[in-house]
């Protein structure tokens, strides 16, 4: 399929002419991992991101302009799961970059290992983000901390990991799932509480509610 692809205003992302689809330039041409659509244009291959599957893409669709991810960055990715979003972050940081994907579940880590064997810039680590000492000795400092875990204390985990591993001036992205913090409260109220907790140590630069794409979720982008 030949569509014209132009850069998106967010660095590392691309869109088609009508601005309807979001994609990244694949670093591994001719290979898809999640049956995503690919587009060939200008001798490059682009992989489409589904914003209903990736909260990072959802935040961009909802208008986040600065997500901080640059070519060659080191990313600490907490809650890597099967690696859908991580595969696109891997495109964005390029071959020079590095991503530490951390998840405590062996089942999803299996899929992530397969992904990492193809995409060399991903490093899978089977560990719990609640206990940074488990993986502290296996990683290096990071330019970006991205967190998407459904835990009650997700805000605390994020702040702690940013404190330990995020460089000064680095960006942190926190996808908040309101329902795992409290199933009863209004989600807006929970977002505010999380924001306050995060603001105590970091500077919030963007805040997007991901509604219709992701129910009861929001994305908080911070700078250290």
């Amino acid at each position: 399929m030949s569509t014209k692809i132009k850069p998106h205003r967010v660095f590392g992302l691309y869109q088609d002419e009508r601005g309807r689809m979001l994609c990244t330039k694949s670093i591994l041409q001719g290979k898809t991992h999640f049956r995503e659509r690919t587009i060939r244009a200008q001798k490059e291959e682009y992989r489409e991101i589904d914003p209903t599957r990736s909260k990072l893409a959802a935040a961009v669709v909802k208008g986040a302009t600065n997500i901080g991810i640059r070519q060659g960055d080191v990313v600490l990715y907490l809650g890597a799961s099967h690696g859908y979003t991580i595969s696109f972050v891997s495109d964005m940081v390029g071959k020079e970059g590095l991503i530490f994907g951390i998840d405590p579940a062996p089942r999803v880590m299996r899929d992530l290992v397969f992904l990492a064997e193809e995409r060399k810039n991903i490093i899978p680590i089977l560990a719990d983000a609640n206990h940074p000492e488990e993986y502290e000795k296996r990683i290096c400092g990071a330019d970006i901390v991205y967190q998407d875990i459904a835990q009650r204390n997700q805000a605390e985990i994020f702040v702690e990991n940013c404190r330990l591993f995020l460089k000064k001036g680095g960006y942190g992205l926190l996808a908040v799932k309101a329902r795992s913090i409290d199933p009863k409260k209004k989600s807006k109220q929970i977002f505010e509480e999380v924001r306050k907790k995060v603001e105590a140590e970091l500077t919030v630069i963007d805040y997007r509610i991901l509604e219709p794409l992701e129910k009861d979720h929001c994305m908080i982008i911070v700078k250290k």
Partner: peptide, 26 residues
């Protein structure tokens, strides 16, 4: 110290060793 380790020289080694450890953990 962890930021000093953030150097391209170490990336490959980090990747290879972590992969072995993760596979073993699985």
């Amino acid at each position: 110290a962890l930021f000093l380790l953030k150097d391209k020289r170490y990336y490959q080694e980090l990747s290879a060793r972590n992969l072995i450890l993760t596979k073993e953990a699985i």
